[in-house]
Amino acid sequence: MPSGGSTLNAENSGNHTLPSTLAGVDPLSQFLTGPRAQAAFTLRVTMDPPFAIDVQDQAALTVIAAIQGGAWIIAAGTDPQFLAAGQAATVRGPAPYVVADAPDRAATVVIGPGQSCRTPAGDHVDVTMSHGVRSWGNSPDGDTVLLIGTYQSSAAAGQLAVSALPPLAVFDTQETDPALLGLIEREMSRPAPGQESALDRALDLLLLHLVRASVDRADAAGPSWATGTRDPVVARALEVLHAEPASAWTVAELAKRAHVSRATMASRFQAAVGQPPMTYLAAWRLALAADRLASSTATTAAIAQDVGYSSAFAFSAAFSRAYGVSPTGYRRAAEVS
C-alpha cells in the first residue's frame, strides 16, 4: 500500500515507590499512557468489486472501520464476518487475513511486510493504486470505503490490553462511535499540521472503545484480566496489583484485601483471569518493564527495582525467559523500530 505513516513477577521483593506513570493503571490505561500508536499506518481504502485484499503484513493488530458499503473479513480459524457501514472490526496478528467483497473471492492484491503492494503474480501496484496521501484502492470513488489503522508492533502492556479481543471481532454501530469514525476520516482526508499525531491518538481512542465493547460482551474471548473485572473479588485483586505492582504480594494478602479466604481468591482468580494471581503479577511487572525499556532512558537496574525485582540480574533472567531477548536487546530493537 502507499505510505500511510511509518511503521501497536517472577519474584516478590520489598516495597518500592513506582513512578507515577506506572502506578494505579490497568493494562488498557497503560496502553494509552505508555508506548502506543506512534506514526501508525493509517489509510483510507476505496474499492469497487471484485476485490480481495490478502493482508500478509504481519502487523500485531489492525482496526478496520467501514464508512460506506461493506466487506467480508476472512481470518484463519474463524468464520468469515461481514463488516457493514458504521461498523468496526479488530484483527489480531501476525497471521494473515483477507478483506473482500465476497467470502470466496480469490486474492486480487497482496499486502506484504512494510505495506508493500503487489498482484498475486508479483507485479507491484503501490503507485497505480494510490490516490494521494493516505488514500488507496482500485477506484478513487469506490462503492466501499474503509478506514484502516495498523499497529505494526504492540508494546507489552498493549498486548495485555488487547488480550480481551478474539482473533477477529466485528462491532456493531452501537459499539462504534460514529463521531470518532468521522473524526478519523476527516483527519485522513485533509493533510494538516499535526495530522500524524492526531490520527495516532484517535486510533488509540477507537481501539479503547472496541476493547471495552469486547469486555462487555457475554461471549468475550477467554479468561483475561478484562473478564476478571466482572468478579468483584477478582476485580479488587486486580485493582491493587495494578496500583502497586512492585509490592511483595501474596495470594493471602490479596485475599485479605478482598475479605475472602486464600482458597477463594486463588480459585476465583484462576477461573476469571485464566492464570494464578502471582503468574499474572509476573506478566504485568514484565510488561511494565518492557514498556519502560522502549520509552525511557532509565537503566535496567532502575527499571528492575521500580517493577519489584531485588536485583537487575534476577530481572534480566526473568525478562529473557519471557521475551526471548535480554532487556538491553529489547531496548535496542525498540529503538530501531
Rank of each mutant, 00 (worst) to 15 (best):
M1I: 08
M1S: 07
N9T: 15
T17G: 11
T21H: 12
V25E: 13
G34F: 00
T46A: 14
Q56W: 02
V63P: 00
A65G: 05
G69C: 00
A71K: 01
W72V: 10
G77H: 06
L83S: 08
T90V: 04
T90Q: 01
V91M: 10
Y97A: 05
V99P: 05
D101C: 11
D104W: 12
A107C: 01
V110T: 07
R134L: 09
S135Q: 15
W136Y: 15
N138R: 05
N138S: 00
D141G: 13
D141P: 10
D143L: 10
L146S: 03
A161W: 12
P166E: 03
T173Q: 05
T176H: 01
A179W: 00
L180Y: 07
I184N: 02
S189H: 09
S189G: 10
S197V: 15
L206E: 11
R212A: 11
R212Q: 12
A213N: 01
D216P: 11
A221H: 14
G222P: 09
G222L: 10
W225F: 02
A226R: 01
T229Q: 08
T229D: 06
A237H: 01
L241M: 02
A243N: 08
E244H: 15
P245K: 08
A246F: 08
R257P: 04
H259W: 11
M265C: 03
A266L: 01
F269K: 01
F269I: 06
P276Q: 04
R292S: 09
A294C: 11
A301W: 01
A302E: 10
I303T: 00
Q305K: 15
V307I: 02
V307A: 04
V307D: 07
S311R: 15
F313T: 12
A314E: 12
A314D: 12
F315G: 02
F315W: 04
Y323F: 11
Y323C: 07
S326N: 09
P327S: 03
P327A: 07
Y330E: 08
Y330D: 01
